[in-house]
Design a protein around this nucleic acid. Sequence first.
DNA 1: AAACCGGGCTGATCCACGGCAGGATTGCCG
DNA 2: CGGCAATCCTGCCGTGGATCAGCCCGGTTT
Lengths: 243, 243
Amino acid sequence: MLPAPSALARKLCSFVALSEDELEVLAGLHRRRRSFAAGRDLTLEGQPNQAAYILAEGWVCSYKLLSDGTRQIVDVQIPGDFLGLRSVLLRTADHNIEPVTAIEASEVLESDLLHAFATTPRLATAVLWAASRDEAMVVEHLVGIGRRDALGRTAHFLLELSARLILVGRGTREGFACPLTQYHLGDALGLSAVHVNRVLRELRERGLLTFQRGQVSIQDFRGLVELAEFDSAYLDHQGPLLR
Amino acid sequence: MLPAPSALARKLCSFVALSEDELEVLAGLHRRRRSFAAGRDLTLEGQPNQAAYILAEGWVCSYKLLSDGTRQIVDVQIPGDFLGLRSVLLRTADHNIEPVTAIEASEVLESDLLHAFATTPRLATAVLWAASRDEAMVVEHLVGIGRRDALGRTAHFLLELSARLILVGRGTREGFACPLTQYHLGDALGLSAVHVNRVLRELRERGLLTFQRGQVSIQDFRGLVELAEFDSAYLDHQGPLLR
DNA sequence: AAACCGGGCTGATCCACGGCAGGATTGCCG
DNA sequence: CGGCAATCCTGCCGTGGATCAGCCCGGTTT
């Protein structure tokens, strides 16, 4: 009997159906489980030789600091996401990582990963797909900050989170639990926390969604999609097309 | 006698010294040279099975369109850069590509690339490095748009271009030829073209740089670096650290 | 209980940037 | 040479969002 599938397994399965063997290799990557407290940074920019992790429980965000004390959150990771894959390749972390909640993560050594890839090439493809998807998310984030107004940007961000959470069984079409504060949202969206508050109020008043006490409730999915021009293609598209 | 090194070869050599054999394999990727006219898009978002290219001459920009007609330029490619590497992997283009000038590019088939990697693993590492660098540039771009003001953002963008162009022999510490219009700059920086104009004037009035008739002249490198908080680490760092 | 702290919420004011509208330059083409 | 189309440039005014300042609430510390 196999153990319950990890969030990562669930995510990858939405892309290609993995065999039992492949799932087993994947599960093998989850030895070396570690926990980290909320709020204390994992990585400091510029430090070499960081490890990579698969996030199993909890949320983290990756950000860069500017000299005036402001920061920009580049992306938010949820269960099933990789952490610091690129810093392993480049041998230097190029951003900081803050656990938003207490988290559990499995440390993944480069050798483990290479071994897994050698054993099960389809797994390599799937992980590569996940990495490309992360990159596409950053691009979409860039477009949002550059060209969408605060309302559309916020709606887009929350819709993206929703889609990603549903994929790993942490949310439904109706909503999801979200541990991000309004400060987090501001830093992610390039807005001030004060303005985030006003934007959330407007979304509420328009009957689109509510975000209260760590719970996002989507009330008018269609309306949100329209407002945000949200097209989930970049998140889940063409799995089957990839060879 | 080897032919003159391509822009890509120059770029990769700044990262690892390549042997003659490796340079030859690299040169082999430049068969299948093609030309494209300025202004006419190469790729349309969502179309499957696009080719990848190595840009040999000229500039292009990758952008995404929004429904209100605005666009966001995600990155600008110069000679030596890859074009559409990710769309080959994902089998679908996720953005549009506009040649800013007439360009020459070498079409690269997946099979060529895989073959080159199999023959010369160090080449694979180098190309992977280039891809990671591109990704880091997008992240830096995101931070700029999210948290820097128009002046710093513009200065940062031009400094980054400068550093990249110097690497492939298209510029010096004093300046470079830049075919981008103020509309391009606006679309890249998330500003209106009108405001770009004002920003360029201010940079000129502060004695930092001039951008006139397609020529960027850097007059106060230090001042620009300070204004933009520019740290080129993400462009050229830790080559030797990568194994 | 008092003090404190993090987070949510709101109003008043300010300013960086967008939008519009028109004029000046430049380069290209017949 | 004249005409036309980009592109550059500028002034004026409107506005989205930042900043500041303050209040409320629930949880923790003492």
